[in-house]
Design a protein around this nucleic acid. Sequence first.
DNA 1: TCTATAAATGCAAGCGCTTACATTTCTCAT
DNA 2: ATGAGAAATGTAAGCGCTTGCATTTATAGA
Lengths: 336, 336
Amino acid sequence: MDKAVLPTIEDVAKRAQVSTATVSRCLNTPNRVAESTRDKVIAAVTELGYSPNFGAKALASKRTNTYGAIIPTMANAIFAKGLQTFQETLTEHGATLLVSSSYYNNAIEEEQIRSMVARGADGLLLIGQSRSDTIYQFLEQQNIPVVLAWSFDASSKYNMVGFDNRAASLKLAQKAIALGHRQFAFLSGERENNDRASERVKGAQQALAAADIDPNSMPVIEAPYSITEAGEAFEQLMSSPVKPSIVMCGNDVQAVGVLKKARERGIDVPGDVSITGFDNLEIASVVEPGITTVHVPHRQMGRKSAELLLSDDAKAKPSQTELQTYLVERDSLAAV
Amino acid sequence: MDKAVLPTIEDVAKRAQVSTATVSRCLNTPNRVAESTRDKVIAAVTELGYSPNFGAKALASKRTNTYGAIIPTMANAIFAKGLQTFQETLTEHGATLLVSSSYYNNAIEEEQIRSMVARGADGLLLIGQSRSDTIYQFLEQQNIPVVLAWSFDASSKYNMVGFDNRAASLKLAQKAIALGHRQFAFLSGERENNDRASERVKGAQQALAAADIDPNSMPVIEAPYSITEAGEAFEQLMSSPVKPSIVMCGNDVQAVGVLKKARERGIDVPGDVSITGFDNLEIASVVEPGITTVHVPHRQMGRKSAELLLSDDAKAKPSQTELQTYLVERDSLAAV
DNA sequence: TCTATAAATGCAAGCGCTTACATTTCTCAT
DNA sequence: ATGAGAAATGTAAGCGCTTGCATTTATAGA
């Protein structure tokens, strides 16, 4: 059994006794059509259950009304939530979302970008800003509007909707310093090709420097954003001769992993060691003690990004929107 | 500045000194083309940076190589993870993923289904099986392959890749009964149009009945899958004259919400009340005490669903794949 | 060398829609 | 009533690709 043959615009035209052009206008620019005609056409459309053929429409109009999002992984709640809002906003405007994930891998991301462009995406949502020049060139040459999210750089030549990872991390570190911490350790996500991760480390280093603490006294260790692997990294950190009084983590998932491992090892948090997270995921609020973290406006980023892409401004002059973060103080960070 | 004019198949044909037909074959069915010609064509393709126009291809071939997934929400880790694997599998096979979410709302889902079909999706991933006849008819009439996931029904006339929600819940309840629990309460997700949720409740009821406990002695209260709202529902449950010794929750998020509220209210878990979850999300493993729950093979479901959709079997005779769940015993469930 | 057959390639007709341009039909001030 | 201009509608030329069929070229058995 073959795919049923669907009614075409011509069928509708015949039934409504108008030309296909009128049907098309009726569907796309209704106000350019007389009301009486419009009614006839609408009636024919409903009776026939007509719905325009996507390929034909894309071919003829050179637009797909489809937008792509390439994120590191949907398995991380922060991207999932942002994506959710992004999609909601697209849907509100009648557009559709194409998704794929890059696993924090630039080469894969590049491939996905090309594939989405080939698939006719009218615009792209990308995470962060570190990627090769060639792919940026490609994007420019194809003239595909792009918005970079989750990072912020006022001097970027691209659309950005994000926040200052470094400043947020700096604020968090300052808070810890104010509480008397001097011996820091940083459990970061992998920093290669991940500007968010590296900025967060830099923020902490900057805070230390500003407080006359040698930034190099803070060991930085990298681990994937996973509970188990963060736990292992934590053990490594704690086995060093000079133990940190605080472990700052690249995100909440890592912080929770650290907390869990600490509990297993009988290390009291925050009594023996303080922990901080990043992102303010739900998970940070339900563990005991709650994780002190930075709230990141994921949903806002998703929405704003979509709006930007949908507006025509995206193609015109790029705009940079900085969103605000704030500290969420819970009990995993305490005075030393 | 306009979208740069891209090379077409004709440009490639000219450059390679062959016909467009040959170029097309070279790209789609390379083994039907002599190797020497193939080389020329490939060379031309690379030199020109050619990539076939999506709309034209879709129009001419009546296939988009694009699959749609409509899930309740990406903000719930269980769907996000399944979706992630689903997408991975599609990508491995060169296909692309279209995503949208229905917020557990049938009317919205219907709209999304229609929209995806209109967008030329070659197949659809849908969650659960409760939806209107009209939309099923629509799907059949359009002859779009569909796989229903997260539920299982061996007698379904559609492709299914899922697990037996009822049986899993039943097993969990039996475990509790064996531990001496007699006074149950069930905090369910909203059951309307959600077969997974209702099956889970039924499983528990069935276990009670089998143990000669009146199923009606178990209050069932519904709440959204959110930590806060689950907490509120829990208070309501605990304010009843006859207090439950165990609260079974529709999923882990609710279980965690309950746990959190219990902690706030000084109710000991599992001392004063036991709690169970469902899904085995990470969140269930990091709280204290860990939540006893049911492991659900989300990733497997995502992968199997994609494979099924990509195979030609999906259109032929529908197949039902039942995946296994298992109990994950932690400390939130204890003897009464 | 000559045919019969298979393999490789080319030709050209669509696929279903949009849109520039041409034509017809209204509107309304005169 | 009339004509100019605006509004509504129609005509038809693509958009870039696939694919059935026709044609050419290669292969190999006699």
